[in-house]
Simulated assay, not measured.
Amino acid sequence: MHAEARMGQAIEMVASSDADHQRPPLIGRSTGQGLYLPVNDVDDVYRKVITSGPISVIEPEDTELGSRSRAPDPQGQELSAGSYEPGSSR
């Protein structure tokens, strides 16, 4: 699978894994890599992701930068959702 999204000058391109790459193990609560999505309702996104099957890496929690959560996607890549918007003046 392959997808591209454009917002102004920013382009995001993602593709599914097509080879047997080793996935990094969890280090504490995270693999330390993955995709981050800024969202308005972290709890709602987390519920939708978890009900589709993956295990939770980080349940929704509040931090000094806002709320966040993490779960692996179906191919084991970490998906993070949070209320922090990168580049904001928070």
Rank of each mutant, 00 (worst) to 15 (best):
R68P: 00
E4I: 14
R68D: 03
M13S: 13
E64A: 14
G76L: 05
L37V: 12
D18Q: 14
S17E: 11
D62A: 15
E85L: 15
G76I: 11
G53I: 01
Y36K: 10
A10Q: 13
G87T: 02
R23D: 07
G32W: 06
A19I: 02
D18N: 14
S67F: 10
A5M: 14
Y46R: 08
P25H: 07
P25V: 07
Q77G: 00
S67W: 10
N40H: 01
S52L: 14
L35V: 13
S30G: 02
T51S: 15
I50R: 12
L65T: 02
P24H: 05
Y46K: 07
Y84P: 08
I55T: 04
I27V: 11
S88T: 04
S83L: 11
G8T: 02
E59C: 03
R47C: 09
D43Q: 15
S88Q: 08
G34S: 07
D73P: 00
E78R: 04
I55D: 02
Q9K: 14
S88R: 08
V49Y: 06
S16C: 02
Y46T: 05
P60H: 12
G53T: 09
S88G: 11
T51N: 12
V39F: 03
E59M: 04
E64Y: 12
Q22L: 15
D20M: 06
I27R: 14
G87R: 10
S88F: 03
V49C: 10
A71I: 06
H2I: 11
S89D: 14
T63A: 12
D41P: 09
G8D: 04
R47S: 08
T63M: 15
G76E: 04
L37F: 12
D73L: 09
Y46S: 13
G28M: 00
P54A: 08
A5G: 05
G8V: 07
D62K: 15
G34T: 07
T51P: 03
R23M: 13
Q75D: 14
L65R: 14
I55Y: 04
G87N: 00
L26F: 01
E61C: 12
S83C: 07
V42N: 00
S52Y: 05
G28D: 08
G87W: 09
T31W: 05
V14K: 11
P38F: 00
I11K: 13
D41S: 06
A3H: 07
D18A: 13
G82P: 02
S52R: 10
E61G: 04
Q33I: 12
R47G: 09
I58N: 04
L79T: 01
D41Q: 05
L65Q: 13
G32E: 10
I58G: 09
R70T: 03
S80N: 06
Q77C: 13
A81W: 00
V42E: 09
S52E: 05
S30A: 13
G66Y: 00
R6P: 01
I55L: 14
E12P: 00
H2Q: 13
R70Q: 06
D18F: 10
S88L: 03
P86K: 03
G82Y: 02
R6V: 12
S80H: 05
T63H: 09
A81T: 05
D43N: 11
M7H: 11
E78T: 02
P25K: 12
P72E: 01
E78Y: 08
P86M: 06
G82T: 01
I58Y: 06
H2R: 15
